[in-house]
C-alpha cells in the first residue's frame, strides 16, 4: 500500500513523514518520530493520555488520522518547556506532587495548558469538568486540580 506524504509543523519545527492511511497521529508521533512523551492508555479516546494540540485545538491523538495533520500545527508535551525553563504548570505539578506514576501527566499538562489559555480564572468545578476527559488512577485528582488552580492564580497575578 502506498504511503501518504504529510507535511506538518511539530512543536514549531517543520516536519515531514510518510504514513499509512490507517495510522493515527499518535502512532506516527511515537513510532516514527520518536516523540514518546505522548502516551497511549486506551486507543479509544477515553483516557486523554495522548492529548495533543492540533492547530490550537485539544484532541486525542489516537482518534486523529495522521493524514489529517497535513498542513497543520501539532503541539506535544515535548514542546512545553522552553529551553531549560519548565512551563509554570510543569513546575507546579512537581511542586504539588500532582503526579505519582506519571503516565497520565503529559496528557493532563497539555489539557491544563489548553484550559488556562482560554480561561485563566477557572472555578474548581470548571477545572474538574475540563479535565474530566483525562483519567488518572493514582492521585484522586486532588493535587492535579490544586496545581492547575494555583498556576491560574499565579498567571492572574503576573497579568495584573
Amino acid at each position: 500500500m502506498a504511503k501518504t506524504h504529510v507535511s506538518t509543523t511539530i512543536n514549531g519545527e517543520p516536519t515531514e513523514f510518510l504514513c499509512e492511511p490507517s495510522q493515527a497521529v499518535l502512532d506516527v508521533l511515537r513510532d516514527q518520530l520518536g516523540l514518546t512523551g505522548t502516551k497511549e492508555g486506551c486507543g479509544s479516546g477515553d483516557c486523554g493520555a495522548c492529548t495533543i494540540m492540533l492547530d490550537g485545538r485539544m484532541v486525542c491523538s489516537c482518534l486523529v488520522l495522521a493524514t489529517e495533520a497535513e498542513g497543520k500545527k501539532i503541539d506535544t508535551i515535548e514542546g512545553m518547556a522552553k529551553g531549560d525553563q519548565l512551563h509554570a504548570l510543569q513546575k507546579k505539578f512537581i511542586e504539588f506532587a500532582a503526579l505519582q506514576c506519571g503516565i497520565c501527566t503529559p496528557g493532563f499538562l497539555m489539557a491544563s495548558r489548553a484550559l488556562l489559555e482560554r480561561n485563566n480564572n477557572p472555578t474548581e468545578t470548571e477545572v474538574r469538568y475540563w479535565l474530566a476527559g483525562n483519567l488518572c488512577r493514582c492521585t484522586g485528582y486532588d493535587k492535579i486540580v490544586r496545581a492547575v488552580m494555583e498556576v491560574a492564580a499565579d498567571m492572574r497575578e503576573t497579568a495584573r
Binding site: 511515537r30 516523540l35 514518546t36 512523551g37 505522548t38 502516551k39 497511549e40 506535544t76 508535551i77 515535548e78 512545553m80 518547556a81 519548565l86 510543569q90 505539578f93 512537581i94 511542586e95 506532587a97 503526579l99 506519571g102 503516565i103 501527566t105 503529559p106 499538562l109
Partner: peptide
C-alpha cells in the same frame, strides 16, 4: 521535588511501550 519530576513532566521518562 521528586528526583524523577522533570523527566515525568516533559515526556522524557520512558515507560513500558517507550
Amino acid at each position: 521535588d521528586r528526583p524523577d519530576g522533570a523527566d515525568k513532566v516533559t515526556g522524557r521518562a520512558r515507560f513500558g511501550a517507550d
